[in-house]
Amino acid sequence: MDYATLLQILDSTIRLATPLLFACLAGLYSERAGIFDIGLEGKMLMAAMSSASVAFLTGSVWAGLMAGILASMLMAGIHGVASITFRGNQLISGVALNFVASGITVLVAQRLFGQGGRTPPLEGEARFNPITLPFAEELQGVPILGPLYYEVISGHSLLVYIAVLTVPLTWWILFRTRFGLRLRAVGENPAAVDTAGISVVGLRFAAVAITGILCGLAGAYMATALQAGFGREMTAGRGYIALAALIFAKWRPVAALWACLLFGFFQALALRPDVVQAVVQVKIPVPFLDALPYVLTVLVLAGFVGKAIPPRAGGEPYVKER
């Protein structure tokens, strides 16, 4: 494998890691607040459909982004009502909302565009287009680092850079602000928060809302930046991979970045079976590469890569005790 190919693979690693990172951080807020969310997939899908549709209809990617975020927050709101207000089973609620999203996105897209549940292809201002970072062109000639900067770091859409910046922002919010302290507390021991006179329900809804926003960004990125439009089931299990990355990262923001990059790298490899074959000297069937992230996730879950301890109050609805 030559350097150019490596750069290509790293470039697509970043592209593919971005939706995972948004979704993974989305899950982080929710789970740190004690609400399990396996409905990341459904929220991304809703956001992808909504953002692509609105972006196509208005011609503005920003309007599309807003629509995607709103749609995702609506789903998050339902999950919140089911699991916080009515103390329902958080896993079942997540599964249910994934189904609703899977069906309803096709229904709406079909109704709007009549193209078999897809949106028409997005062009120009209706998409997030690549940004060339300062000096990328000029530094291209510098050996090794120049092409790396030009090919891999520069030339992504705005959302990619926002995703990366969300990592330190999340760390700062969690560990340096009042909101973060309370959020972490409510995921560990809601009774402590309640007796301190803070609303458990309010905090958990706030966390779920942030999850909605970030899943909205993930879905919008899928439909308006990574690809040019929405297609049925286009998230293809990324919500679940993000969940796995969250476990892999042990619910920590910076580790989440590395986990998502790793899983993005696997996805990038699955797109280039020829490269894999050239490196390992054996023909690897594509399905095996497709399954690799899931297999690795299972290995992580099995604790062969460290022990993952989830937030203590995770998955348990809060009921005041006598």
């Binding site: 009042r178 309370r182 009774a191 402590a192 007796t195």
Partner: peptide, 20 residues
């Protein structure tokens, strides 16, 4: 009603913080 993996200080401050 203590958060087990917080420090004493964090537990004392929780809910009685001075600012954001």
């Amino acid at each position: 009603k203590l958060v087990q993996n917080f420090t004493v200080l964090e537990n004392v401050v929780l809910g009685a913080e001075e600012g954001a």
